[in-house]
Amino acid sequence: MNQTGGTAMGGAHWAHFPHQADMGVRGVGPTLAAAFEQAALAMTAVVTDPASVAPALAVDIDCEAPDDELLLVDWLNALILEMAARHMLFSRFEVGLDGRHLHATAWGEAVDIEKHQPVVEIKGATYTELKVVRDESGRWLAQCVVDV
């Protein structure tokens, strides 16, 4: 399992960072939306190799929060809810942001134990090590710890 991954487009990528009991997920991208998409990929990678998940079914997600950091946690928690309630894993994300409102589509498929060898269930995204920032080069970084 890779600890990092990503695409060439705009240097967007994701990474994990350590936490004593749980796992940190980090997304980096040229826009806030891209960083949120990469953070979601990092979260899938806590459970399985995202490349093993076919983007076969689409699920729409909407959420809203008073600031960017709370919005990141809301976005990841909305995905956790869909993963748990639908028994799905997601591997492709398209995020649209309109002020404090997020509208997204996540593509994935039903959990298949043989195919995905899922490691762990995610209980929730937390405010620990929560950071949504733009660096000097204009890149966005979005991260937090997820409780497993």
Partner: peptide
């Protein structure tokens, strides 16, 4: 897990209104 998630957010938002200064969200 879902109850924890939802009330954590609700309590972060409501804390200032109750005069609570949270040292950590």
């Amino acid at each position: 897990h879902q109850i924890g998630t939802e009330f954590l957010k609700q309590m972060v938002i409501s804390a200032p209104g109750y005069g609570i200064d949270l040292p950590d969200r």
